[in-house]
Every structure is written in structure tokens, then in C-alpha cells.
Design a protein around this nucleic acid. Structure first.
Length: 281
DNA sequence: CCTCAGGGCTCTC
DNA sequence: GAGAGCCCTGAG
């Protein structure tokens, strides 16, 4: 068991990080801490006044710092993307503690295939049942958790097996992707080393992966901060603030021009702000 | 009962 | 290459 603390700072707020739509396996506990299931283990994390306490059975501390993107200077990025932009300033003020989590590409591939025409509670539930059925069971502080299955583990599931887990029409996409990754026909590690554009092209060859899902994988697991996933919420907020268009590509082109290399991080602030304020409609 | 939810595929024109 | 209909399922 590894236990350590990190200094709290103005660019880190757990609620913002876990509720901006980038992850599905973090749960808030009764004591206000969060427990998350990562590729290699469990993390319990809690905010105190001046620092954040992390308890985990993951052995490598560096891996955790990298997961929380602590090597990136968000202050600088915020300044850059909000220059002469009141709306962005407002969104950043609201979700000031957002950080991009560097998650596992394989898990993101499957998770965002499942996210298609789906809602967050159901996505989380489906991922949990997949993990329960095909992932390894591990214990942490007396409780049992299931890791997300490896490609080989998930490749054991037939389309019918997946249908039973309520994946709906996405079952065949998950099946094909699992087979391809398990057999080595798709090499996510290799794809992650390509440029943003090339990597996106490769990812969208996968059945069930279009522009939006590809951008999520690129942003949340392949360190491509220029990826700007356009979902219905982003479409809405972009229409309200920047560009009147129904065309997804037009919207993402606009974002790339305006926010450049950090379009994806801008996306997170906009998404969180718009979604949390939906009641204002 | 209908609609639609953090899309993508396929067929059509 | 743009648009429409369809895909599973569960919640509202």
C-alpha cells in the first residue's frame, strides 16, 4: 500500500476532474473521498485543506502523478485559451480545478464505443458489468473491485455474451475491437505515438469509432490536447458562444483555430460549465 | 405510449 | 458529401 500527499493548488479540484465527463470508474464516497479503479489498481483520494491525500495499491507513484496530469502547467494554458475571451474566462472560473486524466487507451476505446448514444449512468453501469464478468478481482481496504478486462480477457466474450450485458447495438463494435486488439491487428500503443491527425485517421477505421469517439480516446488517453470532441453539449455551447453551425466539422475546425494545441482542455471547461448550468435554460 | 440520451453506420440522392 | 433512418435499452 502506497500512501502520500500532494500540495493542493488552484488548478486541482476533484469534483471538477471526475465530473467533466472524461472518466466512468470514479465514485464519490460518503466521507467525500473518491475511489477510482485504474488499469493497475485502486486509488482512494481525498481533499484536505492544503493538500490531497492519496492511498493506493498501485506501486509506482510516478504513474499516479502522470495519471492526474500533474506535470502539466494549467495556469499557463488557462491564460492562453482565455485571452480576449470573456466566455472562456467564465467557464474556467467555474471549472477551475479540471485536469485531463491520462487514462488507459484500451479502456478508453471500449468505454467511448459504449458511450455512443448513451447516458453516463448507463455507460458506467455497463463498464462495471463488463469488468465484473471479464476483469480480475482485487481487494482494497477489505472491499472487492474488478479491474477493466485486458484485451485478451474481453476477447473471450461473444457478441451474445455482450448483448446479455446490455450493450445494445454497440455489442458488435466492442466484440470486433476486442478481437482486433487481442490479435494485435490494432496496436494502440503505436497509434498513440502518431501525430493527432494520423492517429485519428487510424482510430476512425475501427467500427463504432467516429470523429467524436476518436477525439475522446485521443484526448483522454493519448495526450493529444488538440483533440476537440464535439458532442451535443459542446455543439450547443459552441453555437451559443462562438459559431452558429450544425456542422460538427465546422465547429471543431473553429475550435482548433481559436484554442490551438489546447482545444481539448478548452473543451473540458466549456463542457463542464454548460452541463452544470443546464438548469439556467 | 412516445422521445431521446455525451454517435455511428449504411443507404440514398 | 449531406441527409435520413436505424440501431438496443432504460429513464422520464
Amino acid at each position: 500500500m502506497l500512501e502520500f500527499s500532494i500540495e493542493n493548488n488552484a488548478d486541482l479540484q476533484l469534483a471538477h476532474i471526475f465530473e467533466c465527463g472524461q472518466c466512468f470508474r470514479w465514485k464519490k464516497q460518503n466521507d467525500e473521498s473518491y475511489i477510482g479503479i485504474l488499469k493497475n489498481g485502486i486509488i482512494k483520494i481525498k481533499e484536505e485543506k492544503n493538500h490531497i491525500i492519496i492511498k493506493t495499491n498501485i506501486k509506482n507513484k510516478e504513474e499516479i502523478l502522470e495519471y492526474f496530469d500533474l506535470n502539466r502547467d494549467y495556469g499557463k494554458i488557462k491564460k492562453q485559451i482565455s485571452k480576449n475571451d470573456k466566455a472562456m474566462k467564465q467557464a474556467i472560473d467555474y471549472g477551475y480545478g479540471i485536469r485531463i486524466l491520462n487514462q488507459d487507451p484500451w479502456e478508453m476505446l471500449i468505454s467511448f464505443i459504449i458511450s455512443s448514444a448513451n447516458n453516463i449512468p448507463r455507460i458506467s453501469k455497463t463498464i462495471e458489468s463488463i469488468s465484473k464478468a471479464y476483469g480480475k478481482k482485487i481487494k482494497f481496504e477489505g472491499e472487492e473491485y474488478y479491474l477493466f478486462p485486458t484485451p485478451n480477457e474481453l476477447a473471450k466474450a461473444s457478441v451474445q455474451d455482450l448483448r446479455k450485458l446490455n450493450l445494445g447495438f454497440r455489442d458488435k463494435y466492442v466484440y470486433l475491437a476486442s478481437q482486433a486488439v487481442a490479435k494485435g491487428e490494432i496496436d494502440l500503443d503505436k497509434i498513440s505515438k502518431l501525430t493527432y491527425k494520423e492517429a485519428k485517421k487510424e482510430l476512425t477505421k475501427i467500427s463504432g469509432v467516429g470523429a467524436k469517439v476518436a477525439d475522446c480516446i485521443l484526448l483522454f488517453s493519448m495526450k493529444k490536447a488538440e483533440a476537440f470532441p464535439v458532442d451535443t453539449w459542446i455543439k450547443k455551447v459552441m453555437n451559443e458562444l462562438y459559431v452558429e453551425s450544425e456542422n460538427i466539422k465546422q465547429i471543431s475546425d473553429f475550435a482548433n483555430k481559436r484554442f490551438g494545441a489546447y482545444a481539448g482542455i478548452a473543451q473540458q471547461y466549456l463542457f463542464y460549465w454548460r452541463r452544470e448550468n443546464k438548469k439556467l435554460d
